[in-house]
Computed example of a mutant assay.
Amino acid sequence: MAASGTTLVIGATGTTGSRVTAGLVAGGHRVRAAGRRAPAVDGAEAVRFDWEDPSTFGEALAGTDRVYLVPPPGAPEPEAVMVPFLRQARAAGVRRAVLLSSSAIPAGGPAAGQVHRALPGLFGEWAVLRPSWFMQNFTGGHHHARTIRDRGTIETATGDGRVAFVDADDIAAVAVHALTDAEAPDTDLVITGPEALDHGEVAALLTEITGRTVTHRRLSHDQVRERLAASMPAGFAALLAGLDLAIAGGAEDRTTDTVQRLTGRPPRDFRTFAEHEIT
C-alpha cells in the first residue's frame, strides 16, 4: 500500500490506539485520530467519532483508505454497529482494515469474533490482531492494578493457567506494520510476549520488583463474574469470567513469533515491563 494513504484510528486515546497513532505519525503517515471528543494528538488530524452515533461515521471516514478498529468498550455484540460501519467504510473508499480482537476469540467467536468473520467479505486487505492479555492490565486504573494497590492481590479464576502477557507497545508496532506495509497483511495475527506465566508467578515477580507483597487469590468463576458485573455490563462480565476458565484450561499457554517476525525486534518480557512501568 502506498505511504500516501490516510489511516483512521478509532480509539486514538486508548491503550493501543494512542500508540498506533504515535507510531503512524512517527513513520510519516497521515492519520485521523478519532474519539468521542475529537482528540488533539500531535501530528494527527482530530475527528469526532462515536460508535453510538452513526452520524459521526461519514466525516470520520472522509478521505481515508485504511482504518484501525477498536470495538466499542464493553459491548458483548459489537458486530451490530461495527459491520454496518465497515460497509459504509468500504463504500467510502477504505480498502484495508485492521481489527483489534483477542487471542482468546477466534473468527466466528463471541464479541469481536463476529466482526473478524465478516472482514474477508468486506475488504481485500485486512488483518485481525489477536493479542494475549495486556501487561498494562497491571497498571493504572485496570482491575488487577486496583486490587494490587488496595489489597496486595491479583484475583482471578485462572488457577495455574499460564498467559504470555504482551506489552501494548508491541501490539501497536504490529498494528502499524499491518496498516502500512506495501504487501497485504497477514490476516490472523496472534500476538504474545516471549514467555507464559501463571498469575502466581506474576505476583512473585511484582513482589520482588516493588518490595510489596503481592499474592494470587484464586476465585471461582461466579465470584469473578459477580465482581466484574459491578463495573461493566453483565454480558461482558460473563464473557471475561469465562475467559478466566479458558486460561485455567491452558488456552493461553503459548507464545508466537509475530512481534519478532513483523517488527524485527523481540517482544518485551514481563520483568522488563514491570521494572519500568510498575512502582
Rank of each mutant, 00 (worst) to 15 (best):
V174G: 01
W126T: 13
D169F: 10
G141N: 13
A44S: 05
T256C: 07
V47T: 12
G235A: 11
A127Q: 10
A127V: 13
T56N: 04
V81G: 12
P120N: 14
G35R: 03
P267S: 11
G140A: 08
L240D: 01
V31P: 02
H29W: 11
G58K: 07
A107N: 02
V94P: 02
V94N: 03
V214S: 09
T15Y: 00
D181Y: 04
V190P: 00
V190D: 08
R217D: 11
D181T: 15
F270N: 03
T158C: 15
P233Q: 10
D42C: 07
A230L: 14
W126P: 08
R162Q: 10
L219I: 09
D160A: 06
D186C: 04
A75I: 12
A229V: 09
D65K: 04
P267A: 14
F270L: 14
G93I: 08
V115H: 00
A22G: 01
G161Q: 03
G124S: 11
L122Y: 09
Y68Q: 06
A97W: 06
G14Y: 10
G58W: 05
D50W: 07
E45N: 01
L240C: 03
T13C: 06
A251P: 00
H276E: 15
H199S: 07
D170G: 00
L205R: 14
E252F: 14
D253S: 07
L129D: 13
A204K: 14
F273H: 04
D150W: 06
G161N: 04
T215H: 11
A229M: 05
G211S: 09
P185E: 12
L228E: 05
L122W: 09
I171H: 00
L129P: 06
G140S: 07
R90T: 12
Q260I: 01
D167G: 01
I191P: 02
V9C: 08
G35M: 03
H144V: 05
M232D: 02
Q114F: 00
T56W: 02
G124A: 13
V67L: 14
L119A: 09
A40Y: 05
G74Y: 02
R254T: 07
S220P: 01
F165E: 08
G250A: 08
V94E: 06
L119V: 10
A75M: 11
Q136I: 15
A40M: 13
H276C: 08
L129W: 06
V259S: 04
T7G: 07
D244L: 02
A274W: 13
G113P: 06
V259Q: 05
V70M: 11
